[in-house]
Design a protein around this nucleic acid. Structure first.
Lengths: 336, 336
DNA sequence: GTGAAAGCGCTAACAG
DNA sequence: CTGTTAGCGCTTTCAC
């Protein structure tokens, strides 16, 4: 019941297994008539080569892993969509692992994958102060092609797919200022990743370029705990010296800003102008509609997967220093 | 470089491979001192059993597949999160396949998976008039445990995880009516799945139970093409006989309703009361805040995965008729 | 153009 | 409690 195998196929065809194997692999050393016979019987029996056997023998397979912090986030969901669109087309199977911003989990996934299950990885790292030694270490022992996207380890020499964080944040911040913000605020995280550092740098440079001094009050540090963040922002927004503009470089922070403003009855954009870095589909429907800097998430996933498969198939580790940079898109709506 | 194998381990320990294998498998027929020796050397070399070899030999592995229509949708993203939380804990690997509501793609994924790569599947079906023959057929030939969730094929005898669509839609519709809606509208799809039929039934019964007649005008049929839907709803909302209440049983329809109202300057809830079936995180921040009937997406994923792994491990196909029903949650906000 | 044979790394009888 | 042995189903030299 559970599928026929090559031996039975060969037997029925009066051929050897090796001939059948080669025919199925469309080898040039097999006559086209034999190939046709083999293919036809294979189709008749709906024969599918056992991937475990062939992977074992070839010591590699068509499976890759995607390791991301979160899937309940439009950016990552879109990126996975982009990845899957190319793996599907190239007949690769895609494993998914979620780290939930937990470094231990990230490490244990990596450790698990040293068993040889996969032929390559696509990764967006989770936040954490410990650096990226585990990736380097994984690579040393597994020697597998790896592509990072968006949240990339800046110090390691791996191919990366990112977006123009510095430039687009600079531009966004200028819009905030041009719209009248005198004291723009940037929300940062405790252990900023490279990606976030770039955004912050864009923000800072935009202030300076527009004659606004960048001080401690230009930044606020939020955590993974959204309730803490809510209270922190509420306190800040209630104070005399509250900001009059905000660049939220992470989707959930933008949402929190809106919640705080709603509860404090602060008027956006009169009291506070807001630009959020997000791929929310409902941005235009928020009250007021949210101005967004969105990332080309689907395309980033697509590029990362394309690059990875190229590395897997061509063994072109030469690509190891590739950095693909795509452009973010600024959409100004009523919140500015 | 690329990992040590069992033979080398055995050699270094002065044991046979089978002893090592059993020791690693924590078999009771191995002395605890031997086990300890084996485990230690394995750890020292960071030895990981080759999954292809062991899957080949055992004719099964710890990989499962998740087949869903879409990942850029909070419901499915949350469900995947729930699934992953249990597969991760039980050391299973999770493949993901997206069908994008494309029946051909659904069939081809299924066909691909007949190769034996996985030990079980979790599925939410895509819309389409062709029925579910391919699932039955797949099962006949692959004999793999399968669990369906949310969008389930009502006619097939497989375990399912769903939510109380009928009851919760009934309740939601009553709220619409109690809030003053005289002509509530339900948005349906061209080829309604069982899940949607149940919601529609709840809607219909709520009208009747509240003395409102259920007519052709109580329903509108939307498609996969969101632009068409936008125009269709715009036309309807502009007409004399426009509805004064809406139950949108699908997230994207609720969003379209909001877009149309915004563009038509219709006041929600004065002109139109809206309840949307969605897991949007931003529902409370929309203008006005959207009343939602949300599904316990994470829990549904978790239950589905728990059930599947139970079936895989206990071979308890007896569970085949299990239907787990979880409760949806109605949250009334300003849109009603 | 086709076949024989070795073996990928592991597990599971079966013997001892 | 430990070892011997026979494969799982496939790919890949190497002969013919």
């Amino acid at each position: 019941m559970k599928g026929i195998n090559m031996i039975q196929l060969a037997k029925e065809l009066g051929l050897s297994v090796s001939t059948v194997s080669k025919a199925l692999g469309d080898s040039h050393e097999i006559s086209s008539t034999t190939k046709k016979r083999v293919m036809e019987l294979a189709k008749k029996y709906n024969y599918k080569p056992n991937p475990f056997a062939s992977n074992l023998r070839k010591k590699k397979g068509k499976q890759i892993a995607v390791i991301i912090p979160d899937i309940v986030n439009n950016f990552f969901a879109l990126a996975v969509d982009g990845i899957e669109s190319v793996t599907m087309a190239k007949h690769y199977d895609t494993f998914i692992y979620l780290t939930h911003e937990n470094l231990e989990r990230e490490k244990s996934v990596l450790e698990h994958l040293e068993n040889g299950l996969i032929s390559g990885l696509i990764i967006s790292v989770c936040t954490g102060r410990e650096g990226y030694g585990h990736f380097q270490q994984f690579y040393e022992s597994a020697r597998l092609p790896m592509v990072f996207f968006d949240r990339v380890p800046d110090l390691l020499q791996f191919p990366k797919v990112i977006s123009n964080n510095y430039e687009s944040t600079f531009e966004s911040t200028e819009r905030l200022i041009k719209a009248g913000s005198k004291r723009p605020l940037f929300i940062q995280t405790e252990e900023p990743l490279y990606t976030l550092m770039e955004r912050r740098r864009g923000f800072q440079d935009a202030l300076v370029a527009n004659g606004i001094s960048f001080t401690d009050e230009s930044l606020i540090t939020c955590s993974e705990n959204m309730e803490d963040n809510y209270l922190l922002l509420k306190k800040l927004f209630s104070s005399r010296k509250r900001p009059d503009g905000i660049f939220a470089p992470i989707e959930k922070f933008a949402i929190t800003v809106y919640q705080v403003c709603r509860d404090l009855k602060l008027n956006i954009p009169k009291d506070l102008k807001v630009i959020g870095m997000t791929n929310l589909r409902t941005a235009a429907l928020l009250n007021p509609s949210l101005s967004t800097l969105s990332q080309p998430a689907f395309d980033m996933g697509r590029e990362a997967a394309t690059l990875l498969l190229k590395m897997i198939e061509k063994k072109s580790y030469a690509a190891a220093n590739d950095i693909i940079v795509l452009a973010n898109e600024l959409t100004i709506r009523d919140s500015v």
